[in-house]
Amino acid sequence: MLVSVQNIRKSFAVGDSWFKKSRHEVLKGVSFELFEGECLGLLGESGSGKSTLGKVILGIENPDSGEVVFADAISDLPSHEKMSVVFQDYTSSVNPRLRVEEIISEPLLRTQLTHAEKKQKVNELLVEVGLSESMKTRFPHQLSGGQLQRVCIARAIAPSPKFILLDEAVSSLDVSVQAQVLDLLANLKQRFGLSYLFITHDITVAAYLCNRILIFQDGKVVEQVDDLNNLAHATNNYAKQLLSAAHFLERAFTEPAA
């Protein structure tokens, strides 16, 4: 067990009246465990609270109750070496005034590396994510979406974290680029022994990368699929609906091309 999420609850205040305050519960008691070296998919529709859960795990939001427990091996590390994150919106998650090399070396600021070592590291990381070293002097607007997302991935793996949260990391990329980035992620996971928590709404993407899938609805985990071969045997009503809808829509590709 690497990360264990225990009965997390989180609610936000709604309505701005002084007299009548009510709270809207977004997470209604979520528990699961993430094991070392696995990719766990968290699948849910927009508004189901999956991104909020991601923020709670990262420590950006505090839960109302429940806790996130890390394994002993990593619980003492500073938080940026424990975990990092890749967001959906790559343009707003980088500083438009920094060059690619500055973006990637930002998480290395607090390390003891010398200037030259950092440069070396940035070069290595760029190659690692499939970009050329010549790109390091470019600004974010000079890169395509897929390239910029690769830069974000390079930044995420720079401090060698144990686990990475991927919050809809491929959802705003073109389909043809999605597969490349997913392959890259699968590759990095192998090489560095990473664990992923992959938040997504797209079940085909989840099935492509993940070992286990949790289906999330309305602030709760409604279905846990430990073996993807049993994916079709989901028992929960919403999970069934989702699977049949996806299966229906992707039908065109079930039979091989003539």
Partner: peptide, 29 residues
């Protein structure tokens, strides 16, 4: 079924790749 241009083939190929695994899991059943 039979795209002529390279770009279309590429689009179909990558899409199929992505969906393949999901369909595989689904048709298992």
């Amino acid at each position: 079924r039979s795209p002529k241009s390279e770009h279309t083939q590429h689009l179909i190929q990558t899409r199929r790749l992505l969906v393949q695994r999901f369909n595989h899991y689904m048709t298992n059943q």
